[in-house]
Nucleic acid binder design. Structure first.
Lengths: 208, 208
DNA sequence: ACTGTAGTTGACCGATCAGTCCAATACCGC
DNA sequence: GCGGTATTGGACTGATCGGTCAACTACAGT
């Protein structure tokens, strides 16, 4: 019964996620959201709740958008090919005309230093989820022989996480796509490195 | 003539820089600044101007605080040792009790997506300056033989920049110091890698 | 001690913040 | 058509935003 919504919740959520990725949680005002989505304040509150809830939902939306890539990675012929696809996707988005693509809502949110503990915990969980995906992929590459670096997969995944986040910052610093790709290439070559190479300093490895 | 200031501008600027690093430019309100520094609004405006000017000055202050490390790097016995000192400093700060140390005002500011073009340009310039330092250090390491990766120093510096920024994000994600150090170790091992390493895109299976 | 100058304090400003309330509207089932 | 329900737009709230103003205070030079 009643009137039907005159917008697609999913589409709005995607726009919102872009804005949050671009300007962060605190840096995105309701007014900005309203102007970008074109809908009224009450419609937004009816559908998604307050700003916090909207943000959390847009994080989920962002994660959902990531799923096709995840599938592509799992369908890749080797662990290494999966990682190439992953970074291709990452760098490719930085080349997009839409500058919103240059950002990651999770990485931006983590670095932003929000106070809200629920938000922080959610972002950490998403980041940990990505880490698991990367760790599994690295492990797979080590098993299928496409990655010859014998360091613990978890440690390599941590570094790939570092690269993922760092690429975003460099993209903001106006580095061209070519330079981002070069960085990715070097990072991948590290995964290929089969010389001794254990962490030259610090603990032998992290917790298993 | 007149009354003398009852605070040290330099000390205040350091506190302010910590706050900006922690919560970003947009995320740090005047009220927060006032409460943390303990001084009145007008004192702050008299000494530093408006929020934007204060931010820019705190960025400079942050860069100045970096100088001792830069000197240490230049005094290091080798290019590689200089980079070890650099990352030791970086990771060491993440271990600090003060969580403000876990952040970098430049990296945070870049990822934050501020609109102000002067701020963005300033941050980009600082980031580029750090890149030059890293490039020179890598070059030095390649010449003195402490770094065996023959890839272009500029490309390696880009990746070290990526690592620098990414470490900050992982630190926010509550990764322990051990895991950060492990990531640094792997990144350094990449610099030691003397196998193939072509820049952008590696062959599926290296002809090793 | 007087005077001029600089620093400090707190009241105050309009704009914007996130969020609420309510009346008007449009639609579904009947 | 009619009744009920969900959506919508606009007015409105108190809090906070960055920033200004003027009165007050403390000190240096004379």
């Amino acid at each position: 019964m009643g009137r039907e919504k005159q917008f697609s919740e999913a589409a709005v959520l995607e726009d919102v996620a872009d804005l949050f990725a671009l300007h962060g949680y605190q840096g995105t005002s309701l007014a900005t959201l309203l102007a970008a989505t074109g809908l009224g304040k009450q419609s937004l509150y009816n559908s998604f709740g307050d700003k916090r809830a909207l943000y959390l939902k847009s994080v989920e939306c962002s994660a959902a958008r990531f799923q096709p890539l995840e599938a592509e990675m799992q369908g890749a012929p080797s662990g290494r090919a999966a990682l190439v696809a992953y970074f291709d996707h990452l760098v490719g988005k930085c080349d997009s005309d839409a500058l919103a693509d240059k950002s990651c809502i999770v990485a931006a949110g983590l670095l932003e230093g929000v106070d809200d503990p629920l938000i922080v915990e959610t972002l950490r969980a998403k980041w940990a989820g990505l880490r698991e995906l990367l760790r599994d992929t690295v492990e797979r590459g080590q098993k299928d022989g496409s990655l010859r670096n014998p360091a613990p997969a978890a440690a390599l995944a941590d570094l790939l996480l570092v690269v993922t986040a760092g690429l975003r910052v460099n993209a903001r610093a106006d580095f061209g796509t070519a330079r981002l790709q070069s960085s990715v290439g070097l990072a991948l070559s590290m995964l290929d490195n089969d010389s001794l190479l254990e962490a030259t300093r610090g603990p032998p490895e992290g917790p298993h």
